[in-house]
Design a protein around this nucleic acid. Structure first.
Lengths: 232, 232
DNA sequence: CACCGTAAAATTTGATCATATTGTGTCTCT
DNA sequence: AGAGACACAATATGATCAAATTTTACGGTG
C-alpha cells in the first residue's frame, strides 16, 4: 500500500494542475521568444504539442487573452497581437507610471544584499548581450525588473506590471532579432547607482528612462511595413 | 428528420459563445452588486444557476481570476477578493494615473454632443443617488467613466481601466450598502465643466480627484475586521 | 484552349457536454 | 482529540456537434 501510484506521471510534471502548467509554458514562450506577433495559436495544436486535453489548454488561453498576451481574432481564432504605434505609446505611459512607482517603493525596502542580487542579474545580462544570446537577454532583462517588483511590497502593482510584459514580449523579441542585442542600451547602471545612493526618486526616474528607452525600440516596427508606397 | 434540433436552445441565448455570456454575466454581477467580497464562488454552483456546462464556466472563471475580479484561494477554492488597505492604495495610484490620462485624451476628441451625452448619464446618476438606488448608482457611475474611456481612442488604456473596475467593484458595492448613496460625493460636475471649457489638463485633474475621492471611501473597511488581536 | 471566379464539399478547428478521476474538507468513531 | 472514511467539488479526458476555412471542381469567358 505504498502511495507511489501516481508518482511516475507526476515525477517531472510537478504537483500543479495541468491548466496552470500550460499557462506557465505559454507565458514563458511569449515572454522569452518562441511566439511571433501575428502568429496563430490553435487549441488543438497545443493539445497535440503539450500532450494534455483541451480543457486545460482552453483555460490557459482564456487567461492569456485576459492578460493581453493573446487576442481574440474576431471569429474563433486566437493569435499573438501585433502592436500598433498607438498601443506602444500607451504601454510606454502605463509602464513608466507603474514601474517607476514600483521602483520608488522597492528602493525604500532594499538593503545591500538585495542590491547586490540585482547587480548580479545585470552582470549576467551584460554577458548575454555581448554573447548575442537573445533568449538570455530576454530572460535576464525580465528578471532584473521582476526582482525590483518583488522588493516593492505592492502585489497589485506587481501583478499589473508583470501582465504588461506579456503584451510587448513578442514584439521585444522581434526587435532583438532585427537589431541584435548589441544595440540594446539600458539604464540599469543608473538604477543600481541610485539604489545604492538610497534616493527613491532618482531610482524611479532611472527606471522610467530605462522603460522609455527600451519600449521606443519597438516603435515603427509595424509602420515600416510600407503598405502601399514602395518609392525606392 | 429536420436538423433544427439545436435552434430551440439558441432561441434567446443570442449568437455569442456560452463562455463569453457566462463571463459577461459574472462581470455584471461583480460590477453591479450581486457578489460580496469574501464570497465563495463554485463552479458547480454556476453550472446549476446558469444552466450551462462546466467548461464554459471554467473558462469564464479563469478570465475573471486573471482580471483580478476573483482570486484563487490557495487550494481549489475561488472567491471574491477582500481588498486590504494596501491594495486600495495601489489601486488609487493606478486609477489616477490611467484614468486621468484617458480623460486628457478624451477631452481632445469630444464635441458638444458627446459632452451632453456624458451629462445625461450624470443626471441619471444623480436621480439614482437621490432615490437611494444602489444598483442604479453603480451602473450609471460606471457608465459615466466608461463613456469617457470610449472617447479617448486608447484601447490599451481603456482595457486596463475597465479591468481595474472589476477589482474594486464588490468593495464599492459594500461601501454603498454601508453608507448609503446620499453620502457619495463626486467631481462629475467639475469634469463636465472642464470638458466644456476644453482644457484637457483640468479634465484630467478633475477625474483624478473624483477617482481619489471615490476610492478613499473604501479605505478601512477591511481593517475593521480585526483578524487576530481583539485588544479592546 | 486556358484562365479565373464561384460554389460546394471536405477537412480542420472551436465549443460544449457528459463522465471518470483526484484531491480536499468534514464528519464520525474510537 | 486524532485518525480514518465519506462526500463533495474541482480537474482532466474524450466524444460529439457546429462553424469556418480551404480545397476542389465546374462553368463561363477571354
Amino acid at each position: 500500500m505504498i502511495k507511489n501510484k501516481a508518482q511516475e506521471t507526476d515525477r517531472e510534471e510537478g504537483k500543479r494542475p495541468a491548466h496552470e502548467q500550460v499557462y506557465q509554458t505559454l507565458r514563458s514562450q511569449i515572454l522569452f521568444g518562441e511566439l511571433v506577433p501575428g502568429q496563430a495559436v490553435t487549441i488543438q495544436g497545443l493539445t497535440d504539442s503539450l500532450g494534455v486535453g483541451m480543457t486545460p489548454v482552453r483555460e490557459a488561453i482564456r487567461r492569456l487573452i485576459s492578460d493581453g498576451a493573446l487576442m481574440f481574432q474576431g471569429n474563433r481564432r486566437v493569435s499573438v497581437p501585433v502592436l500598433s504605434d498607438g498601443d506602444i505609446e500607451q504601454l510606454i505611459y502605463v509602464r513608466k507610471s507603474i514601474e517607476s512607482e514600483l521602483a520608488r517603493r522597492a528602493a525604500q525596502h532594499m538593503g545591500a544584499s538585495e542590491i547586490n542580487q540585482v547587480e548580479a542579474i545585470d552582470r549576467a545580462l551584460d554577458t548575454a548581450i555581448q554573447a548575442g544570446d537573445v533568449s538570455g537577454y530576454l530572460r535576464y532583462n525580465h528578471a532584473f525588473h521582476a526582482t525590483l517588483y518583488a522588493q516593492a511590497d505592492a502585489p497589485v502593482l506587481s501583478d499589473l506590471a508583470e501582465r504588461l510584459w506579456l503584451r510587448f514580449g513578442p514584439s521585444l523579441r522581434m526587435v532583438c532579432g532585427r537589431f541584435g542585442t548589441q544595440s540594446l542600451p539600458d539604464r540599469h547602471k543608473d538604477i543600481i547607482r541610485a539604489l545604492r545612493e538610497g534616493t527613491p526618486d532618482d531610482v524611479a526616474q532611472a527606471v522610467a528612462q530605462d522603460v522609455e528607452q527600451g519600449m521606443e525600440l519597438m516603435g515603427g516596427v509595424s509602420t515600416k511595413r510600407i503598405p502601399q508606397s514602395s518609392v525606392d
